[in-house]
Structures are given as C-alpha cells and as structure tokens.
C-alpha cells in the first residue's frame, strides 16, 4: 500500500479529465474548476459505465431490447446532466430510460439513492430485497447500510467502493474488472494485479 502512494496522487487528475470528456460538458464549466456540476457529470458517466460491468438476470428484462431503467430516488443532484450524459446511449443493446422518483420502484435496474434519503436507507434496502436492482449512493456508509456501490468524491476526484456480495445477493453479477477498480477492493485485494 505504501508502494502505491504516489500513484494515488496521480489518479484524481486522470479521473477529472476523464469525466470532462465523457460527460458532454455543460456551458459555463471549465476544466479544473472543482464545481459541483463537474463532479456530477463524472458521476453520471460512472453510472453509465457501472451498467456496462453489471450483469442483470434475464428475468429483469421482458425482452432483449427492453430499456434499461436508470432511476434517481429522492432529491436529484444531477439536474439535466444525467439526461444529457445518457441520452442516445445504450448498454448491451438496450436503450436507457431515466426516471426520477420519491419511492423506490422495483422496475428500476439501476437506482441512484440521493443523500436526501440517507435516513431511510435501511428501509429502502429492505424494500428492494429480492429485486435485481443495482443501488448506487454517495453517502458515507452506503454499503454498510446495504447499498452496493458507493461513490466517493473528494473534490474533483471521484472514486467508488463496491460490495460484490450485496450485488450477488440481489442476483446481480459484478464484473471482476469493475471490482478490481473499486477503492475498497483495492485495499482488500492489496497487491493483486
């Protein structure tokens, strides 16, 4: 871990740049400005990329081209960024549908749970038990509360933790490649390449 120290310092810059590219940058935001909008553009791209490394059980979709439901629960921190980022894109041939809701819906495939729902997080996880829904949150302790992917932002630098176990329980398969990128898994697997 000490050996990796220097590398970690390089990473945030790379991620910021990456986010800048991937999210079609909105007006008024320049690179290197640690604005909220930039942070969420990166996070929106993350959501899309997570979808690519997750395998949903076939029962989650009624057809091969059934849209992938990306839902935002609670107060939406993205604004239009999420729609902009995901517009016209597809995952495994499925178009993406963005929905916003105040109550969890089991028809969602990927559910972003806003920090506004922090207090009832255990309840929500309880409600979603048995449903193959990838839950993404940005609260510290989101995984501990039963969430699957926890976005960690440190200014511009966006990372994530993942709980493959929680995902397995929901019937989702998380690609090892994604797992290997997770901050918590890096810590756990240590020197594994």
């Amino acid at each position: 871990m000490t050996a990796r120290g220097p590398q970690w310092r390089v990473l945030p810059v790379a991620l910021v740049l990456w986010g800048t590219v991937l999210g079609a940058a909105g007006p008024g935001t320049g690179p290197g400005e640690g604005t909220r909008a930039d942070e969420y553009r990166v996070k929106a791209a993350f959501l899309f990329n997570f979808a690519k490394f997750i395998e949903w059980p076939s029962s989650s979709f009624s057809g091969t081209t059934t849209p992938l439901q990306v839902c935002v629960l609670g107060v939406d921190p993205f604004g239009s960024t999420l729609d902009d980022t995901l517009r016209g894109r597809a995952v495994a041939g499925r178009p993406i549908q963005v929905r916003r809701m105040t109550e969890p819906d089991r028809s969602c495939h990927l559910l972003f749970i806003s920090t506004s729902e922090r207090k009832r997080l255990p309840l929500i996880t309880e409600q979603l038990r048995g449903a193959s829904i990838l839950t993404v949150g940005e609260d510290d302790g989101f995984i501990a509360a039963g969430g699957m992917i926890e976005l960690i932002s440190d200014g511009d630098n966006v990372q994530f933790n993942v709980s493959p176990l929680a995902a397995e329980r929901a019937g989702l398969h998380v690609s090892a490649r994604l797992v290997s990128l997770a901050a918590n898994q890096r810590h756990a697997s240590g020197g594994r390449r």
Binding site: R4, W8, L15, W18, K52, L178, L181
Partner: peptide, 18 residues
C-alpha cells in the same frame, strides 16, 4: 476496458505490467 472506462491508469498499468 474497465480501466479505460473509469480512467484508471494504475489498473491499466497493472495489466500492461504483465
């Protein structure tokens, strides 16, 4: 692919180190 998707240079470096 994952490293590229998430811009993770260190992972990519690990892969290349092979």
């Amino acid at each position: 692919t994952a490293a590229l998707a998430f811009g993770d240079a260190s992972v990519a470096r690990d892969v290349l180190a092979a």
